[in-house]
């Protein structure tokens, strides 16, 4: 465990709390892609069913991410269902899941169910944000709190990059699957980060140029 990873994980944790806060305070899941949230459930479930014990920290975090992502689906599907507009959440998820299954089958560290699911989850996580970004692109604007959620989520993956560099020098290990997918995932946030830093951080509303 190094500071980059710790802060990355804390940022991930924060992103969930920001999302819950947004849903509670506005009593609405407007602007949040149900598809992206459903993909995160798929990511966490397929990755964390590997019951290898690492540490208390690791186990608690895994339970938290599975539990909170399912709870968010419940909030979106049942409690605040009328506030979700499926007509703008139109990204075709099968175009993401299909290729990720294929990639998981081709690129893995061992051809076992657990390992294929693990690498599938890594690939899927890297693109799971696309329905959300697509929705943002379509509406052209977002509530400030939603952008804070996305920024925290993006920061989590961005912080994993220095973590991998650090681990390369201190432990001599490189996880090519995680690194490749992680770079792609962080790359997807670049446009968003640009607008976030130039607008939201300056106190303006998040609006994309027409």
């Amino acid at each position: 465990m190094n500071l980059f990873r710790l802060f990355g994980d804390l940022s991930h944790l924060a992103s969930i709390f920001i999302l819950l806060h947004k849903i509670y305070t506005t009593r609405s899941c407007r602007g949040i892609s149900f598809k992206t949230q459903a993909l995160y459930v798929a990511v966490f479930v397929s990755r964390y069913i590997d019951f290898t014990y690492i540490s208390v920290y690791n186990t608690l975090m895994k339970l938290f991410f599975i539990g909170s992502s399912c709870y968010i689906l419940y909030l979106m599907r049942i409690k605040y269902r009328p506030t979700h507009d499926p007509s703008i959440d139109t990204f075709r998820v099968e175009y993401l899941v299909g290729p990720c299954v294929l990639l998981g089958l081709i690129f893995n560290y061992q051809f076992t169910v657990i390992e294929v699911l693990w690498s599938f989850s890594i690939f899927l996580e890297s693109v799971a944000i696309l329905p959300q970004l697509f929705m943002l692109q379509r509406t052209g604007e977002a509530e400030t709190i939603t952008t804070h959620y996305l920024a925290a989520l993006g920061a989590y993956r961005a912080l994993y990059i220095p973590n991998w560099i650090y681990r390369y020098f201190t432990e001599g290990t490189v996880d090519p699957i995680a690194v490749t997918a992680g770079l792609v995932q962080t790359g997807l946030y670049l446009d968003f980060f640009y607008v976030y830093f130039t607008k939201v951080m300056q106190g303006q509303k998040f609006e994309l140029p027409a």
Partner: peptide, 10 residues
């Protein structure tokens, strides 16, 4: 370089 022995990252 080697990949990590276990998937210890989240």
């Amino acid at each position: 370089v080697n990949p990590p022995k276990s998937h210890d990252e989240l």
